[in-house]
Structures are given as structure tokens and as C-alpha cells.
Design a protein around this nucleic acid. Structure first.
Lengths: 170, 170, 170, 170
DNA sequence: TTTT
DNA sequence: TTTT
């Protein structure tokens, strides 16, 4: 069912909380950004850092898992494929492009306690006794508050449609 | 020297002959596009094909190897990282983005004989004694014609600079 | 469903025709070996070649596809995970180990015509009406002769059981 | 300089502190084991866990980094290649095999504070003010005590030689 | 714009 | 045991 390879593997930190939407089709999609950091010595031998931002798209069951367990700042491993959407800019008539990583595998890394987003600690409500039984244990996280997902957004048609303005690269 | 992972692995076919340029800095850069093909059954069970186009950038010694041995249509394995350049659109003032794969490893796949571009056999000009002793042999291809590289192009500053219009996604 | 990453990606050539077996459990398993070649300059600057042999195990539907389309010599891309089985050597009582790649994705590379095994052309026998049901269907190869699969072999218990003597590393 | 792909990517936890040795050749090699965990539902739908143990070998500068910063229990990303050594069993005369991952890239994951081995906190001696300025920061770890490396061990000849008994798979 |  |  495939005649090629298009594989992306990322380890980085979420730049934003995941945003999950239900599409009219019934599909679930979650979006977030991921920063991958790279350090290198420049031509003068000075240590430089470079951060690359990736726009992540997740579908289906994994979309729900990402929405539930991931938060801004969290370190994750992601696997997926590169996909570039294009549309005609309504203002200029030019072709525009946005490249995304369609994620099909995710591993949470490290421990959630230190990687929480700014308000992570609060959102579990009464989960005071939440304890971390060891690294890598994925079952001890506080479940996310029910989100207001704001009903149905216009369908991206599996990511192919015309993106809204704030759907564009970040 | 790194604090994250940003890795891309592709197997696909070149959509264009490589184009090599020498930068004022003395660096060599080669560009080409790569198609990765994916087939899948859609919701109605019909077999569909989807082609993803990737813009490939190669630096240094590997740029020269790609320029010398790769041709349109050739099947290759590429490894690299995702990099998104951005600039301000001079017409609209909006931020624009272009995502590229900065390639750091390449393997030619299959045999060159069947994968040659349409005019592969001709382009060596006077290289009459060009012989192909078998696939995978990287030394037996006809060297590329000396290209008119047209002098120095504006430096991309290792791919970071403002791209020219025709430098944008393809 | 996972808390870690164990991923192997190989591009190489089959050292043997695939061998498919049906297990008493009803599962299908296919085994073959794969050579990955690496060349490098040794400390004296002389170009050396090193071949690594991998023992490949494939289960289920992909086992049948591999058995049907792959032949000795064929170049493939494989993805899978590392798995080491162990057992007690009946002669010495020592623990013995065999490491295998459990393959979960396969892409045929290049073109089949040049990569055929020694007797490739003949083995289709009377399969004159071989048809190609669609693209991506690598069905232009001669289908394999019905194999005598010799009934049920002892179950490896998903590769965990005590291997028979000739099941050991090659 | 290569004609194939032999790539392994692992995310797991060290099962032992790294052990570094200097070889007579002057080369430095570090060994440790890594566990990758996988969970899956068995045929009866019961969640099962499977741990795969990998024998890791690191050479050169990266060997020193691993020895200095990694400890038992630490979560890491490793990249490398599969290599199988073989030798004749002196007792039985049979061919024996040991498969290792020759590591060429390593990323520490999560934070060191929670992933420390049993005696990690003590070994820095006077590094009382060791602080963790955030995840992923690789420069804030307490440097390791100078190890007694015990002089020269028999050379593995770049991993090709006859392993000693306790050099065998773990 | 590639490939099958 | 493959491939170039």
C-alpha cells in the first residue's frame, strides 16, 4: 500500500497546549507545535543554538491521547510523515504552502512532573495524591479537564482544504 | 552538540535534475525535488495514490556527489532534517514560509540503467566511452556537463536568507 | 501501548529466498536473511567493505507478501524491531541467544528485472495469465510456485520458543 | 562510502552504569545495556509488557560522554547500527554469535534528577549546588568522578575479536 | 516535476 | 548467503 518512504522522527518540546477539534465528518484532529533544538559551533567556533518549529497534526485515537496527556513544554518523541498543503492566497492570488507533520506515533519522554505547562499542576482538580511511580509511567498523569471544544470547525478535508488564516504556519 | 531529534528519511524519485550553485562564501549547495509516493484505500475502498513533493537542499561534498550522480527520475534514499525558512512578503508584508529537507546522507537505489532521465544517455556529450559496469557503482556515470552556474547567487546564508521568488516552494 | 522505541531500518539485499511456514496456531511466518553493505576507509586509507547479515522474521499478511514477491538478491527497504530470543543449549546447558529483526514494513527497491534470483525467470511455470491488479502491485513478478510447506512446524510462540537447530543464527 | 542502510533507533533506560575501557590501540570504548519497553494486548486482550535488552557499544569521544553523563536508569535516545560478532566456542567448537548496537548518536531525555541510578546523587562528591535549570539541559549535570578504569583490557579489535566469557550477551 |  |  505504499511505494516510497516519507518518515519523520522528532524529539522536542511542545510550544503550545494541544488543540483538539471534531470535524463534521466525525474525525478528530489535534494540532500543536513542537520545537526541536540543535546546538552547533559556528564558523568562529562559538556555540550556537537553533530551534526549529514544527506544526504537528494528529488524527483519530492518537489525537485524543495527545490532547489528554500532552501539555506545553512536555518533551515527546513523535513519528510521522511530511505533508505540504497548498492553497491560493485570496489577496494576491499566489500559491501558498504550509508544511505539517502528520503524526502517527507518539511517546512521552521523561517525567510529567517537571515538564508541565504553566498551569499543569492545577488542572487535575482534586488529584492531590497523584504520584510519580517512576520514569516512563504513562498512567499516573492527571486526566485533562473537559475542554470546551467549541463545536464543529470547518473541515480541513483530511488536511487538504483551504486553511483559515490562523491555520497557517505559526 | 544537540538537544533534540529532527530526522527525516525519504525514499522517492527525483522530479528534476539537481542544480548546483557555488555561493560567494565558497560553499556549494545543490537543490532538487523529490517525490514520495503513497498508495492507500480511501473510505470507499478505492485505491488512491498520493504524491508528496519535497524540496531538497544539500551542502558541501555531498552536494557535489548529488549533482554528479543523481538525475531526474532516479530512485534514492535520503536522510536529513526539516528546516523552515521565513521571510516577509514584499508585496503583502506577510510572513511567508518555505520548508526544506537539508539532506546529510544519500544512497542511490536500484540500478541507474532503468532510472535514467529522458535524456540521460545524451548528456555526456563527448563521453563516448562511458560505460556502466553495473548498478550502484558510483564511479561509472558520465560526469555532468560543466554547468553554467552563472557566477554567484545571493547567499542563502546556510539556507537562512531571503529566498528569491523562484526559490520558493515549487 | 508502548513506552519506548525499538526501531530498525535496513536497506540491503536478500541473501536467500524467503521461506514461509504456517504455524499450528494458524499464523504465517516468513524468514530470510538480508545483507547490508558498508564501505569505509580503514586507518591506512584503504577502502574496505563490510557486510552485515541480518536474520529477518515477518508475520501475518506481510509474511505472505514477502514470500510472494521477494527473491534472493532483491534490494529492499525493511523496517522493524530488534528481538533477541534465548534458550538453554541442550549440550552445554549454557544460555544461548539469537537476535532477529521482526519486520513490520517492507518496500521493494529498484526494478525486479535486474534483481532476480538465479532462476527467477523460470519459476513462474504456467502462470501465463498473471495479472496486474493495479499500481503498486508488484505483480509483474512471477508468482511463487506453490510451496510444500510440509505441514505444521513446531510453533515458535511468536518467535519466543526454543528454536530448532537449523533455526539458529545462520 | 556506503551502499546500504543499517540504522537502529532506540529510546529506553540504561540497565547498568556505563563501563569505559581504554584499548591498547588507544581507542576508548564504553559498554552498557539498554532496556526498551513495549506494551501490547495479547490474544486474550490482556495488557502485556515486554522488555527487550540491547547490548550497546560506543567508541571514541561519544564513549567518554556516555561514560560521564549516563547512569543506570537514565532514559536516552540512541542511534546506531546493528553488528553481530561471531567466534568459535572453545568448548563445543560451534559458531557463536553476539549482536550489539554500535551507537553513533545519543540524546539524554527527561531530567537527570529523577532518573538517577541508585547512587547517582552521591557520586559527584562536592557538587552540592548542582542544579537543574530545566529539561534537556545537558550542561548542568555533575561531572563524574574520575573512574579507575583498570588499565588495558584485551582488545576487542574494534569489536571483532573473541569475546571473553563475561563479554557475551547478558 | 518522479515513480509504478 | 546478497549487492557493487
Amino acid at each position: 500500500m505504499a511505494r516510497g518512504l516519507n518518515k519523520v522522527m522528532l524529539i522536542g518540546n511542545l510550544g503550545s497546549d494541544p488543540e483538539m477539534r471534531a470535524l463534521p465528518s466525525g474525525q478528530t484532529v489535534t494540532n500543536f507545535t513542537l520545537a526541536t533544538n540543535e546546538s552547533f559551533k559556528d564558523s568562529s567556533g562559538v556555540l550556537q543554538e537553533r530551534t526549529e518549529w514544527h506544526r504537528i497534526v494528529v488524527w483519530g485515537k492518537l489525537a485524543e491521547i495527545c490532547n489528554q496527556y500532552l501539555r506545553k513544554g512536555r518533551q515527546v518523541y513523535l513519528e510521522g510523515k511530511i505533508q505540504t498543503r497548498s492553497w491560493d492566497d485570496s489577496k494576491t492570488g499566489e500559491k501558498r504552502y504550509a508544511t505539517e507533520i502528520v503524526c502517527n506515533d507518539m511517546q512521552m519522554l521523561g517525567s510529567p512532573m517537571q515538564q508541565q505547562g504553566s498551569n499543569y499542576g492545577n488542572q487535575g482538580g482534586g488529584y492531590g495524591q497523584q504520584q510519580n511511580q517512576g520514569y516512563g509511567n504513562q498512567t499516573s498523569y492527571a486526566p485533562q479537564q473537559p475542554q470546551e471544544q467549541g463545536g464543529y470547525q470547518p473541515s480541513p478535508g483530511m488536511g487538504q482544504g483551504e486553511p483559515e488564516k490562523d491555520d497557517l504556519p505559526f
